[in-house]
Design a protein around this nucleic acid. Sequence first.
DNA 1: CTAGCCTGTGCAAAGATTTGCATCAACAAG
DNA 2: CTTGTTGATGCAAATCTTTGCACAGGCTAG
Lengths: 138, 138
Amino acid sequence: MSDPITKAISVLREKGLRITEQRKAILEVLSKADSPISAEENHAMLVASQCDLVTVYRSLEQFVKAGVVELGVRENGTKVYCFGHGHGHHHHLTCRMCGDSERVDVCMKNELEEIARGYGYQEVTHVMEVFGVCPSCS
Amino acid sequence: MSDPITKAISVLREKGLRITEQRKAILEVLSKADSPISAEENHAMLVASQCDLVTVYRSLEQFVKAGVVELGVRENGTKVYCFGHGHGHHHHLTCRMCGDSERVDVCMKNELEEIARGYGYQEVTHVMEVFGVCPSCS
DNA sequence: CTAGCCTGTGCAAAGATTTGCATCAACAAG
DNA sequence: CTTGTTGATGCAAATCTTTGCACAGGCTAG
């Protein structure tokens, strides 16, 4: 049960999503990546590209909605995905040269929600990504 | 000189960028918008679509690099642009229903740079967007 | 185990954004 | 004002992502 994939699958089941070979393969790829990856990269890493690229896009979107996968953005706007690894919401510090990334646990969630409430906004969410040049690339 | 367009133009000149009719038109549209807008929206608002959509994409990108325009992201990943209005770096609280947005002057710039430096990262930048449902839409 | 419902998948096509390349024109120098 | 350099533009095409639709297959109830 400590296996992140097994865990993700049970969460998906709870949410009423179906477990298919394609989705298992996509999760498999995600668990092997050590940095957040895009839908295309995920598809390329599937053994023998066993499923359609469109399915990867759609599945990742579902995983994010279900809360088992975290969504991020590259500096150029590309969406990237990674496992939450139990920490849930978090952010990344990504190298704009090599794409490597570090987990950043700082977050202004609370401050932001307070400010938003000040403007009368409800259901507040946010996206944040940090970019730089890592030691190896500078 | 208090005119944001005139100001933007002089900055662009300083940076060695050329001032064309197309770019002036794009800045004009940007100055009229009261919320950040996408490249496509900007193009649609150009009188008689006087320039190619591709040019709008490229020009906005240049404006961001030159620092006269701020880049944001919608919740679905679309890039949006707005004038910095002299406040320079800032963020937005955007309604996910109607697209209206408020300027948010809170920013963790300093904390983030410190953290990034802790990992040995240089040239740190970040993107942050806050989303919610505004009073009129809820 | 079987049947049926309804989600998930693949294909095709639309839509959004980026890139390559030849031509055009802004700007600096003379 | 004229000219040359070099960045900017438009068109076409490639790339990335989303959407529509018919069919296949996961899961629940019997």
